[in-house]
Design a protein around this nucleic acid. Structure first.
Lengths: 224, 224
DNA sequence: GTCTATACGCAGATAGAC
DNA sequence: GTCTATCTGCGTATAGAC
C-alpha cells in the first residue's frame, strides 16, 4: 500500500475515535511510521486529509449497500440484508477504529460534529442518504406490491423512519450499555417486521385470528 | 443569576456547538463577560465544567419527560406527548446552542464523543436512558392493556426501538437536509402509530376490511 | 519522499495583586 | 471574586538539508 493510502487509513481511525479537532497529525504520522512533516508532502493540510477520509468512508459504504437489493428475493429478506449491511458496516468501522466489534462507531456523529467546520460536506451527506433512502424505498414498494407489507404505510416516509431507526440504533448502542446491536440484531429486526407486515388476519376473508406468539417476558436489567 | 450558573449556561452552548475539545474557556469567559482566569474561581478545571454542564442538561431533560405519562389519557396520546417532549427538548437545546429551531442539536452526539474522555459518564447516561425507556414501556403496556396496541409486539423491545427511532430522527435531521423534524413531526408520529396499533380488522369478528386511506404520493425531492 | 529544526498560535492552567 | 501577567504544552504548518 502506498503511503498516501496508509495515511488516510490511519486518519480515519483517529477521526472516528477522537473527532476532527482532537485527532492529531503527530499521532497519525506515528501510526503510519513516518514523521509529521512527511504528511504534508501528500496532503496540503489537515482539512484535505479529513475530506479524503470522509469521501473514502462514504464511497466504500455506498458500494456495500448497493448490493443487497434483489428482485428475486422477498422484500422481507431484502430488508433484512439491508439492515445487516448497515449494521455490519458500523461494526467494521468500529474495528477500523480499533474498538470492540460489539460497540459500533457512529459515523453520523463524526459527520454531525464536522458540519460546522465543513459546510460543504452537507451536499455529500445528502447524496449519501438519498442513496440509502431510495434503496430502502424500492424494497418497501416491492414488499407492498407482493403483499408482504401493509398498504397503509407510506413507503417514502417509512424509508426515512427506518433510516432514522437504524442510525439511532447504532448511535444508542454506542452510548447506552443496555443495547448491543450484535446480540439484538435478529430480535430487533423481527420486531420491526412485525410492525409493518401484512398479517394473514387482515388479508384473509374470514378474519380468523392467528396466534402470533406472545411477547417473551424479560427480566429487568437484561443486557440486550 | 449567579456567575457560576452563567458559566454553565455559556459552557453548555459551546459544548453543544463545538464539542468538548474545541469549546474554549476564553470564549466561554467572553460570553459570560468575565476573564478566563475568573472561571477557575468557580470550577477546578475544564473537566469539572463539562461534568456540571452534562448533569444540568440531563437533569432538566429528565424533569420534562417525567410529565407526559398520564393514566387518564389514551396510550396514543401519552405516546404522542412523550415524542413531542423529546423533540421539543431537542429544539430547545438547539436554541440554547444558538442555532435554528428547525435544526435540533443532538445531545447524543456530544455524549458519544465525550465518552472516551469521560468513561465515568457512562453510568449517568445509562440512568438517563433507563428512565426514558421505562416511561415508554409503561405507556406501551398501558396501550396493550387497553387494546390500542398490538399484543404481538414486545413492549420492552419496542421501547428501545422507539428510543432509537427518536434519537435517530433528531440526529438525522441534523445531517440530512431532507428531514426536518418540525414539519414532519405529525406525519412521522402517525406513521409510527400505524405500525403498532391494533386495527379494527384484527379485532373485529367478521374481519370486514376497513379502508385505512392510501399512502399519499409525494414527488421525489420533497422537503419533508 | 522523508527527515531535523523551528516558527507560531492558542489551549488550559497558575501566581499573586487588588 | 475578578483581574493582569505569565507558564507550559501541544497543535498545525513551513524551511530547507539529505
Amino acid at each position: 500500500m502506498h503511503t498516501k493510502d496508509r495515511i488516510v487509513r490511519a486518519a480515519i481511525k483517529n477521526f472516528l475515535n477522537y473527532g476532527y479537532e482532537k485527532a492529531s497529525l503527530s499521532t497519525i504520522a506515528n501510526e503510519v511510521g513516518i514523521k509529521k512533516p512527511s504528511i504534508y508532502h501528500h496532503f496540503k493540510n489537515k482539512d484535505a486529509i479529513f475530506e479524503a477520509s470522509i469521501d473514502y468512508l462514504l464511497c466504500s459504504i455506498e458500494e456495500k449497500v448497493d448490493l443487497p437489493y434483489d428482485k428475486e428475493h422477498s422484500a422481507r429478506r431484502n430488508l433484512e440484508q439491508f439492515f445487516n449491511a448497515i449494521i455490519e458496516i458500523n461494526s467494521e468501522l468500529s474495528l477500523l477504529a480499533g474498538g470492540h466489534f460489539d460497540k459500533p462507531y457512529d459515523l453520523i456523529a463524526l459527520l454531525r460534529t464536522s458540519l460546522t467546520h465543513f459546510p460543504s460536506l452537507q451536499a455529500r451527506i445528502n447524496i449519501y442518504y438519498d442513496g440509502l433512502a431510495s434503496t430502502l424505498e424500492k424494497i418497501l414498494k416491492q414488499g407492498q406490491k407482493s403483499g408482504e407489507i401493509r398498504m397503509n404505510l407510506d413507503p417514502q416516509l417509512l424509508s426515512l423512519e427506518m433510516l432514522a431507526w437504524l442510525e439511532g440504533l447504532c448511535m444508542l448502542s454506542g452510548v447506552y450499555s443496555k443495547i448491543s446491536i450484535n446480540t439484538l440484531r435478529k430480535k430487533l429486526y423481527d420486531n420491526i417486521w412485525d410492525m409493518i407486515y401484512e398479517s394473514d388476519d387482515t388479508k384473509g376473508f374470514f378474519g380468523a385470528k392467528k396466534k402470533r406468539g406472545l411477547p417473551k417476558t424479560l427480566s429487568l436489567g437484561t443486557k440486550w
